[in-house]
Amino acid sequence: MKEVSHGLETFLQQVINGLSLGSVYALIAVGYSLVYSVLLFSNFAHGGFLVVGGYACYAALKVLGANIWVASAMSLVGAGIVAVVTERLAYKPIRERTNVTLYLLIASMGMSIVIENLFVIFVGGRFRALPPVIPTSPVSLFGLATTSAFDLLSLVASVVFLGALQIFLLRTKWGLAIRAAAYDLRTAGLMGVNVNLLVSIVFFVAGALAAVGGIFLSVRYTLYPQLGGITIKAFVAAVIGGLGSLPGAVVGSIILGLAEMLTAGFISSQLRDLVVFSLLVVTLLVKPSGLFGKNVSEKV
């Protein structure tokens, strides 16, 4: 009997951890999916925006001595600006000249290497812990399970930001324009939408969301230049949910977070990455367009 209740407790704990991790993946995956829905390429530099966000927060806290709200705001804006600058420097010249998305994909891989190594060179490759600004004390959940305040907080923050994004996309004029562009960028341009401004806004939003994810991930795993590599899981989540679909990205991320944490809790924490990639492969085999993706079939 005791065994069973202990198992249940672990299970609940891992579910909460999984939801928390999944919600952070969701913040990253949504930004990535947003860019994909408009420009139809996988932006591998997305992990770089996350790292910029993490370091901006760290610098604001440590060097400027700002409080967490100011530091987070600076981090969001900083990562958003880096995202916009990346787009202007590396992607805009390419997308203006050709519609071969492969070139954008490779340029984004280049940008991800550049951003990562700028931090290695100018900030140093060592691991840094964020000052204890986010509470990580244990919290008891109605006596059923114990979890850390940090997990609950990241879950809440993710829900808030995803809700804000949803409102932005559904209730504002630019949100409408972005949805139109996701349908067809060229036609949206013909309808009088300023395409370059629109793409910049999309990148700013994606960068800012990645920064939120970056702050929470750097509390969870400490901060280092290669932290952006974790976005690969957000890519996987976006593919599981269906590339270009925002609800899909969120659902995929939650599934992934749960799978990862339950594997770590009940099987072995070394196998968690393997489970992630197996999930990807199974999804692609069963339903390549993902859970919510548009079924892409080419017209002849």
Binding site: A90, V100, A107, I113, V114, N117, V120
Partner: peptide, 20 residues
């Protein structure tokens, strides 16, 4: 070697921009 990866990444981007 410190700058190697940085240059490598930058070269990738520059090639895509100038001569994809």
């Amino acid at each position: 070697s410190q700058y190697r990866m940085l240059i490598y990444g930058a070269v990738l981007v520059i090639i895509m921009v100038i001569r994809p």
